[in-house]
Amino acid sequence: MAAQLATLRLASQMGGDPVRIALAEPGTDAEVTIGGRTLRYPAERGEDAGAGRRQRAVAFALVIGVGEVLAPLVLTGPTFARPDGSAFTAYREALHAYLKGAEPETAAQPALQEAEKAKARGIAMPPALLLSQLVEGDEESFNLALADALEAHRAYYQVADRADDPGTSVNLDVLAPACHARRRSTSCGPLNPEPF
């Protein structure tokens, strides 16, 4: 278990560091620490700080529950490096609103609508309903949405050659809110809708 946690922590650092590099003053070097090693990179807003990689970094940060890893991701937001424009935009904005504590209920509605549209087209989407239940703070509904999200993930990867995809074993977008909710309920009692 300790080795798995160390690997997740390393993945979280690696995912969040492009955002730290992008936050640095242009023309300077950004100092980042990965696995205990301090490295320097020229400040830039490259592709690595884009919305997709940021979403993965947020997921890893929520899984391991380290606020210092999550903080720069929350400060910047999903469109910090460039506009998103993907099918996941509404979900990413809703997750960011939740983490900031900035009207997450309102932000969750477009994410739910986009998830329904994508479901009709057979596109695998992040679990918007699970996020909305996390926002609501309803533990029973969250648990039901968690079961549904896991079932949807399993069903999606049973089709054609998707079973060979590396994403089959773990869905970070489902695991992250589950770990976060577990951590919050352990430290705060029933699911607390307060942000990270």
Rank of each mutant, 00 (worst) to 15 (best):
A30P: 11
E25L: 09
F60L: 14
E151D: 02
T28E: 11
A61V: 01
L130P: 00
D29K: 05
C188A: 12
R20W: 14
A152T: 00
A111S: 05
P42M: 08
G67E: 15
R54S: 11
L99S: 03
Y98L: 12
A90F: 03
A94L: 11
L191E: 03
P110T: 02
S12R: 07
A163M: 08
D148C: 02
A22T: 12
A97V: 10
V135I: 15
R37D: 04
T7K: 09
Q133N: 10
S187D: 04
N171Y: 06
L95H: 13
L8C: 04
R162K: 12
V159G: 02
A120C: 01
T33I: 01
L95K: 10
A87L: 07
N143D: 14
R20S: 08
D17S: 14
E151N: 00
F80C: 12
R92S: 04
G122S: 03
L175R: 08
L134V: 05
Q55L: 14
S12V: 00
E31P: 00
A11C: 10
D164S: 13
T76W: 08
G189W: 10
V174H: 01
I64H: 08
A178T: 08
R45K: 15
E44S: 15
T89S: 08
V19D: 07
A22C: 10
L172A: 02
A30R: 05
A11F: 06
E68H: 05
G167N: 09
L10H: 05
E93G: 06
R40P: 01
R9G: 00
G77P: 14
L112A: 03
H180N: 09
A111T: 01
D164Y: 15
A2T: 10
S187I: 08
A43R: 06
M14S: 03
R45Q: 14
V69N: 05
D84P: 03
V174L: 05
L95W: 15
M1F: 15
T7Q: 14
D161S: 12
T79M: 13
G36S: 01
A155M: 07
E114C: 09
L62V: 05
L8P: 00
S169L: 15
A81I: 12
A118R: 03
L172D: 01
A160C: 05
P177E: 05
A107G: 07
A176Q: 03
E116H: 06
P166I: 09
G16F: 03
A178M: 13
